[in-house]
């Protein structure tokens, strides 16, 4: 089990989460998002299974565990479920015979294609991460934005880009609104559906009519 904190904030940002988990597994901090680039992943949490021969048998898997949720005091909104951990246990026990192992055709279908735009976006994103690490937020913002424009379905570029944004709340609002819009237009919100339920962000998003008046009010306030 390898837990990869993919976060430009490095140890400072992620240590408390690792410490709280008292991990018994391998822990890695990937500040440059190298692993997602190699696997072609566009959001997180995301997962892959790799068998004893080094073959990928499941990948680009949106994983939201049962423990993940928002506690509002009276009610707790549960984000995920145990389907991924149950499936993982099944694979560990049964290996290639597990019903959750994907055929190579299904795996290929689920993997994002490598295009000129996604490659250029990757280069821009890495440039943004470099400038962010150097404390040059202006240039970081510019390159995060370019990466996001080139690869609009890459939530990593967008969400990691928030860390360099001027106003976190404002960019959150804009991003969730974009997510709502994408939800309306496509079934492929996060990773493609894999057959395991509870794996994407669909349930978090609100309809477009909710965002529009809210954004307008927010923009007006900013202008004043």
């Amino acid at each position: 089990m390898i837990s990869v904190a993919q976060d430009s904030g490095g140890a400072k940002a992620v240590d408390k989460w690792f410490d709280r988990a008292s991990p018994t597994f391998r822990c890695v901090i990937d500040t440059t998002h190298q692993i997602s680039s190699l696997f072609g992943w566009v959001n997180l949490p995301c997962a892959a299974w790799i068998d004893e021969q080094g073959r990928v048998v499941r990948s680009n898997e949106g994983v939201l565990p049962a423990e993940m949720g928002v506690n509002l005091g009276v009610v707790k909104l549960i984000a995920g479920d145990s389907s991924f951990s149950d499936a993982t246990r099944d694979w560990i026990e049964h290996g290639a015979a597990s019903e959750h192992v994907l055929s190579s055709a299904k795996l290929a279908e689920q993997t994002k294609p490598v295009t000129d735009e996604t490659l250029l976006a990757e280069a821009e994103f890495k440039l943004a991460l470099h400038f962010e690490a150097q404390g040059d937020k202006g240039r970081a913002r510019r390159h995060f934005a370019t990466a996001s424009e080139l690869a609009p379905d890459n939530w990593l570029y967008l969400r990691q880009g928030w860390t360099a944004s001027r106003s976190r709340a404002y960019s959150d609002l804009k991003s969730y609104r974009r997510m709502s819009r994408l939800n309306k237009n496509t079934d492929k919100v996060f990773s493609d559906r894999t057959g395991l339920p509870g794996e994407n962000y669909r349930r978090f998003t609100l309809p477009e009519w909710f965002w529009t008046p809210m954004l307008q009010r927010f923009k007006q306030r900013r202008r004043r």
């Binding site: 904190a5 976060d7 992620v14 989460w17 949490p45 969400r159």
Partner: peptide
Amino acid sequence: VLFTWSSW
């Protein structure tokens, strides 16, 4: 089993 997460 390889999985990614972040603080944000």
